[in-house]
Amino acid sequence: MEFTRRETLAIGAGAALMTVLPFRANASADDAIAAFTGGAAMADTGVELGAPEIAENGNTVPIDVSAPGASAILVLAAGNPTPGVATFNFGPLAGDQTASTRIRLAGTQDVIAVAKLADGTFARASKTVKVTIGGCGG
């Protein structure tokens, strides 16, 4: 098959686009974190975030969070149009401070979990989840 230069460039750009499209972190994610922590520092241990490395489909991505002793965990998707995902508030009859759910990710981005621990300090974890533009999805 013969292509003009224009077509070759177009294919190249198209092929590049077909792979992962990264999103830049959203400034409003930082605002949401600041509102939750009051600007306090966050340790990098104390909360765990489980998320797949590559999402099967960005519309339904399973995640789980765990922060022993925490009173609340905030989850954000830094690259979504609005970063808020959920806030888990654990009550006196919570069996532990873990939760699983399924979320929507608009593109490859960091998912962030911030936990408010029992002693009032904060912890943060994040994972990069690749969200691909599918194939012949039908």
Binding site: M18, E56, N57, N59, T60, T132, I133, G134, G135, C136, G137
Partner: peptide, 22 residues
């Protein structure tokens, strides 16, 4: 094919709940 892992196209699992359209 692109980012989709191709299956054999079996339909024993249909109707299927698709994550793509929930």
């Amino acid at each position: 094919i692109r980012a989709d892992h191709l299956s054999q196209g079996q339909i024993n699992g249909f109707p299927a709940y698709r994550l793509k359209n929930a």
